[in-house]
Structure formats: C-alpha cells, structure tokens
Write a protein that binds this DNA or RNA. Structure first.
Lengths: 166, 166
DNA sequence: GAATTTACGTCAGTGTTGTTGACATTCCAA
DNA sequence: TTGGAATGTCAACAACACTGACGTAAATTC
C-alpha cells in the first residue's frame, strides 16, 4: 500500500512542517473550491446546504431521504428544512417508493437540473483549470491523498458510486 | 505550465466524470480533515473559528489583527467575537505595537499553545497517516493541485510563509 | 497644527446551517 | 397486532458568518 521504495530518507515528506503546509493547503483550497458556487447562490435564497443536496440528488436520481442523510452527514431536521425549500420552489420532487411506500425518492425537476448545472459548471471550471495546470500525475496523487484522508464511512460513500450509476 | 507530454490522449483526466469525482473527494476529505479537531473543540466552548485563529497566531506569532483578518477572510466583527473569547480565557494575549501603537500583536499564551498543540496533533496525525499511505509522489501532486485551486490572493497567503519564519 | 486616514473595538440586528428534543404518521415485518 | 423503521414537522437554540453604524486612538498628510 505504501510507496516507501526509496528507502529511509523518503520519510522527509512527513515532517511536521510539511504536514502543516498540507493542512493550510486544504484550508485555502477549500475556500477557493466553494467560492464560485457561493457567488451564484448568494442572491438566490439558497446556500451551500442546498447546493450539496442538489448535487447528490443529481448524482443519484431516485435516492431516498435516508440515503441523503447518510451521505450529507446532517440531521433529518436540518436536511428537511433544505428539502422543503427545494420542493416549494419546484427544484426537487419526491415520489413515494413503489416497494416501500414510506420512502421518498428524490428527483431534480428541469428547473432543479438547471441550477445544478449552473453550480457544477462553475465548480468544474475551477477544478478543470487546476487539473490542467497540475497535470495527470499530480491529479492522481491529489485523489489518492484525499481518499486516504476520509473516514472509512465517508470513503465508502465516495467509492460507492465509482461504477454504480443508480 | 502543463504536462501534456503524453500527447492528445492525456486529456482523458479532464472528463466531467473525473472532475465530479474530484469535487466529491474534496467534500468528503474536508469532512475528515476537520472532524478530529471538531471532536476536541466540542465540550470546550470553542469552535472551528477559534481553531483557525489559534492556528494562524501560532504560525505567525506577533501577527496583527489586520493580518489575521486578511488570512481568515472574515469580517472584523466576526473575528473580534472569537478573539475576545480567547483573551478572556487567557489563551491569547495582545501587545500594543512599538512602531505603530494602533496595532495589536497577537501571541499565544502557554495555555493557548497547549490547545493549539492538542488540535494540530490530532489534525497532523490524520494528515500523516494519509501522506504515509499515499506516498511522497502522491503528496507532491496533492499539494500542486490544491495550490492551483486557490484564488490568487489565497495562494499568496499560503506561499507567503514558505520560508519567512515570522 | 488641522484634517484625514488607518487600525481596532463594539453594539445591534440578521441569516444560514447545524444541533436536541418531542411527537405524529405511515408502513414493513415478526 | 405490535414493534420498529422511515419520514415529516414543530420548537428552541447555538455557532458563525454578515451588514451597518459609531467611537477612539494613533499615524499620516496637507
């Protein structure tokens, strides 16, 4: 799993100073990462929470409220407030489950899909620029480190849709 | 700038699907990234905002309130609430500037340094584990992509202390 | 020396997003 | 039929951000 192929001295990349730089890189990069969607959302009556909900409903159409709770890691009360706004504004619709009628399966409406596209276009544009500037090898490393940084359950959520479309 | 050395096909890493995976990796990894300090902070009367203040005061002892505002990217009212709590609890002290008496230079007390150490130990432990699992090449790529993702001003803040100790 | 700007602090109000706790409904499963 | 799971909703609250307005002291500029 590790790549300690260059012997003992390769551990120089694990100094406290290097780790601190990594921590700050996460902090500053995450700010940039969220800034473009945030700009779009301000003015509309939505925030980051709405963005996240719309993103994951788009990723997994027909997902249930329970699934979404697990992915987003918030309480149902918190998610409910967000979903209600999206329902009321006609961005998301819920269909009662066929197999289990307690479940609500969530779908984006055309209007919701349009917002999702606007938000993810902005976020992807920044991502694409960063990827292009860094190159494919760096991108591979980027993904590897981020994956290793996740909690096991978060990692499962992340990997769970590598090939499963729905 | 770019590393398109392998010809046209190397652009496969820029597909929308790959970019979406990168976006979700940022989301899930950031949750892991903040979870350990968050656990320590809950129970104490502090939150992430206090963590960030303590982190950057530790990184740059003697920094002014204005500097901190620029680094953290928040309003002075927001920062002031946080700093007041840290003053009152004796974690941070402010010394009037010698050259410019309007400025307040911020320093961690022993007590503040102890909290900073507890928080950053936890965060570094996760970072170290991720770095070790991913290896030095991946870490290099990780840093490169994150840096490319920052806004120019954030990047300046980030790079501004690569060698300058104070 | 007076006027302006800078650095900082503070009061008051507001909004987003998260939290607990409590309770109701619907429906699957034993 | 009863217990528990999935969902929705109400109320209260906390952390953390924001804007706007005002005040003070010190530095700078004219």
């Amino acid at each position: 799993m590790a790549e300690n192929s260059t012997g003992g001295e390769s551990l120089l990349f694990l100094t406290d100073e290097n780790l601190r730089k990594g921590i700050e890189a996460m902090f500053f990069a995450y700010r940039g990462f969220t800034s473009d969607p945030d700009r779009i959302l301000e003015g509309l009556d939505y925030g980051r929470a709405h963005h996240r909900a719309v993103h994951f409903i788009n990723r997994s159409p027909g997902t249930t409220v329970g699934n979404l709770l697990a992915v987003l890691g918030v309480t149902k009360q918190s998610l409910n407030r967000v979903l209600r706004a999206l329902f009321d504004d006609g961005l998301v619709e819920a269909r009662v489950g066929r197999a289990d009628k307690r479940e609500r399966h969530l779908y984006l409406t055309d209007k919701g899909a349009a917002l999702e596209r606007a938000l993810s276009d902005a976020q992807r544009a920044r991502m694409r620029a960063a990827y292009r500037a860094a190159g494919p090898v760096a991108v591979q490393g980027f993904r590897t480190v981020l994956e290793a940084m996740m909690d096991p359950e978060q990692r499962r959520q992340y990997q769970g849709l590598k090939e499963s479309g729905a």
